[in-house]
Amino acid sequence: MTEKPTQEMSFEQAMAELEKVLGQLERGDVALDESIALYERGAALKTRCETKLKEAEEKVAAITLDGDGNPTGATPVKGL
């Protein structure tokens, strides 16, 4: 498990680490204190994934199409 701050992780990095965390928790072969730390890390990773997905959805929603259905560019989304 890396200790890279979740705010610096891409969606793919956060998802890969979240899968590892879940695997460790599901096996149940870690001490209680470590399980709690893993759960906290997993919660932070889940939040990061949700944030990155929301950002992507907002960017996709901002793309405008011309009369032929071709993208004409993106309208800036407030806050991004």
Rank of each mutant, 00 (worst) to 15 (best):
V77A: 04
E57I: 01
K20C: 02
E58Y: 01
F11V: 12
E34D: 04
A62C: 08
E50V: 14
S10G: 14
G23D: 11
A56T: 11
I63G: 05
K46Y: 13
A56F: 07
V21E: 04
G23L: 09
G73A: 08
A31L: 00
G79D: 03
I63C: 06
M1L: 08
I63K: 04
A31N: 00
L65D: 10
D29W: 00
T2K: 08
T51D: 13
K52T: 09
E34C: 05
A43C: 05
R48G: 11
T2H: 02
K78S: 09
V60N: 10
P76A: 07
E40M: 00
G42M: 08
G23M: 14
M9S: 13
M1F: 03
V30A: 12
V30K: 10
D66L: 11
L22N: 13
L18C: 07
G69L: 00
G67V: 11
P71F: 01
E12R: 15
I36M: 02
G73C: 06
L22M: 11
G23W: 03
D33S: 06
G79V: 02
D66A: 12
M1C: 03
Q24W: 05
T51M: 15
E19Q: 15
C49E: 14
A16S: 09
L18W: 00
P76R: 11
S10T: 15
R48C: 05
E8N: 03
A31M: 01
T2W: 05
R27G: 06
T51P: 10
P5H: 10
P76D: 08
E40L: 05
G67S: 14
I63R: 07
M9W: 09
T47V: 14
A31F: 07
S35I: 00
I36S: 01
M9L: 11
S10D: 11
T47G: 13
T51E: 12
L32V: 00
F11C: 14
L18K: 03
Y39A: 01
E17C: 05
E8G: 04
V60L: 12
A31K: 04
P71V: 03
R41H: 04
P76M: 08
L38N: 09
F11S: 13
M15I: 13
M15L: 08
E19P: 06
F11M: 13
L45T: 02
T47E: 15
E50W: 13
T64H: 10
D66Q: 11
V77G: 01
E3P: 03
E58W: 05
Q7Y: 12
D68R: 13
E57K: 10
E50I: 14
A14F: 15
A56D: 10
L22V: 02
T6A: 07
T64D: 05
T75E: 11
E3N: 06
K52D: 11
P5W: 03
C49Y: 15
R48D: 14
Q24K: 11
E34N: 04
T51V: 15
E8Y: 08
E17I: 10
A62P: 03
L53M: 15
N70K: 02
G67H: 13
G69S: 06
L65A: 12
